[in-house]
């Protein structure tokens, strides 16, 4: 089994998949597809942790993988989907930058990360490219937050950043102590619930979920 994972470079495939879902997020305008992309990203993240746990035989990593799967893979997507349904908005209609350009820019971001991290950093982790991929995912999440107008897509951008951070921490330290991970995940869950409620309130008060409208004074 371990040889099989090595031979088919499963870890490489999953980490490239994580990068790919983050990049693909730039191409989607339908909010449902955005949520689904995030779900796939989280599942890949949790399966990566599970496989690394299997490879090095650490039991506490299995717990981390299960926690990731439950919170990021199931609870958050269900919650996000419910918000999308309540807001009655289906598309992020007018992003600041069009699809093709934002895809290209995210590709360039990945290139910049690879170029700047290819020398001078020694990573003692399980794969030499996971740190690069995780930092690229963080930057792409930031980029999504900058270029999207809707509150909900910005929240998804933030979640991508968090997935990237989690992966970065994981690739450097093989996972933090379970209690810290529990705390981070709980924080995340609460944060997203509050942000979701904010998004619904913005929609109710301004009759639009477009964050540009927040600069208009109400009197």
């Amino acid at each position: 089994m371990k040889n099989w994972i090595e031979a088919f470079s499963v870890i490489d495939f999953i980490s490239v998949g994580i990068l790919l879902t983050a990049v693909a997020m730039n191409a989607f305008r339908r909010l449902e597809s955005c949520v689904r992309t995030y779900t796939v990203n989280s599942w890949l993240l949790s399966s990566l942790i599970a496989i690394v746990a299997f490879m090095i035989g650490e039991t506490h990593l299995y717990i981390a993988a299960a926690l990731t799967l439950v919170t990021k893979g199931i609870l958050l997507p269900v919650f996000l989907r419910r918000i999308v349904k309540q807001m009655k908005v289906t598309h992020d209609v007018e992003p600041y930058i069009n699809n093709a350009l934002s895809l290209t820019i995210s590709g360039i971001l990945v290139a910049v990360v690879y170029a700047s991290l290819s020398v001078g950093i020694f990573v003692s982790g399980f794969s030499k490219n996971v740190l690069q991929i995780s930092i690229a995912v963080i930057l792409i999440g930031l980029f999504i937050m900058i270029t999207r107008r809707k509150a909900i897509t910005q929240v998804i951008g933030l979640l991508f950043m968090e997935n990237g951070l989690f992966l970065a921490g994981f690739s450097l330290t093989f996972g933090m102590p379970t209690i810290i991970e529990l705390g981070v995940l709980f924080d995340m869950l609460m944060g997203v619930i509050i942000l979701g409620i904010f998004a619904i309130q913005i929609k109710r008060v301004f009759t639009s979920s477009d964050l540009d409208k927040l600069t208009i004074l109400k009197g």
């Binding site: 470079s9 490489d12 490239v16 990068l19 790919l20 990049v23 693909a24 191409a27 069009n98 699809n99 093709a100 350009l101 895809l103 290209t104 995210s106 590709g107 990945v110 290139a111 690879y114 290819s118 030499k128 490219n129 690069q132």
Partner: peptide
């Protein structure tokens, strides 16, 4: 956007090749 997406795929393939 379809062709640009595929272009980014090709670009990433080259990058990941260099990395992996």
């Amino acid at each position: 956007s379809l062709l640009g997406g595929a272009f980014v795929l090709a670009f990433l393939s080259l990058l990941t090749y260099i990395m992996i």
